[in-house]
Design a protein around this nucleic acid. Structure first.
Lengths: 138, 138
DNA sequence: CTTGACCTTGCCCGGGGGGCAAGCTTGACA
DNA sequence: TGTCAAGCTTGCCCCCCGGGCAAGGTCAAG
């Protein structure tokens, strides 16, 4: 099977498959006499594994570790769980950051009339960094 | 004021200030006879505006639009509000995506014993894409 | 044989920076 | 006055995770 077919089956792009090979995430694919890469069933499984790992938000480095665990029959489920838990924690940190931004913005937006006048608390906040300039800086 | 001082005052790095100039986000800074960039109070305000916009998660493209609105006395607060609302919506979409990943992972992690044995539902999920292989595929 | 689809490599682009190098200028101190 | 460290200049490469395009080779069907 050539790279295009492998891409379709795995849901990755041919470009990504080549890239993963270039960065060493997967072993170099076998080549035919014409120089074309060809992929076995086992290769397809690896690609699908990568695709699903990426879909769960793992970075390529994490995917590499997951692949290592997958192919290591000596692995412990504790190792896998630890990797997944670390990723969950990273996701939660990121979610909290974004939620905090959202809340700040929501607050500003709620105080903006949104009419045809130029005066706007959002712009004021960006100007002043949240200092109160509206009443007597004295 | 030179770029290093401007960087300190704005909380940006000198590198980023040069970058913003290079991509046209800010107008080229004035230069002294020695070729050094120098920054006025107005420049510092612009840099601080950018910094706060970035802190709120706006992309550089959005920051560009915000700068345009800021410096346009003909702006309407409705325009600013629309930009901020669009950003809030993007944040919420992103948060939902990440939360969905987190929930999926949490579910998998909760079913993983995390002991010294290799058997692991997380790895199984990545292998099979969620197909039930545990009972009679018949 | 031609045509079109597919494959190969290589390069540039994005966002949003970090880091380092080589060379100039500036300011402080001996 | 010389010297030396900071600071500034530009330029280049790096990270992640790809997209897109170009030039050229290959394959299969008509």
């Amino acid at each position: 099977m050539n790279i295009g077919q492998a891409a379709k089956h795995s849901g990755l792009s041919a470009k990504m498959i080549r890239h993963y090979e270039a960065i060493g995430l997967i072993a170099p694919a076998g080549r035919g006499a014409n120089g074309y890469r060809h992929y076995t069933e086992a290769d397809l499984q690896r690609l699908a594994f990568i695709r699903r790992s990426r879909d769960l938000g793992f970075s390529l480095a994490e995917v590499g570790r997951l692949l290592g665990l997958w192919e290591n029959s000596q692995r412990t489920s504790a190792e896998v769980k630890a990797l997944a838990c670390a990723h969950i924690e990273a996701l939660e940190r990121r979610i909290d950051e974004l939620a905090s931004l959202r809340d700040t913005l929501r607050n500003l937006v709620d105080h903006c009339r949104g009419d045809e006048r130029p005066d706007c608390p959002i712009i004021r906040e960006l100007e002043t960094g949240g200092q109160r300039t509206d009443r007597c800086p004295s």
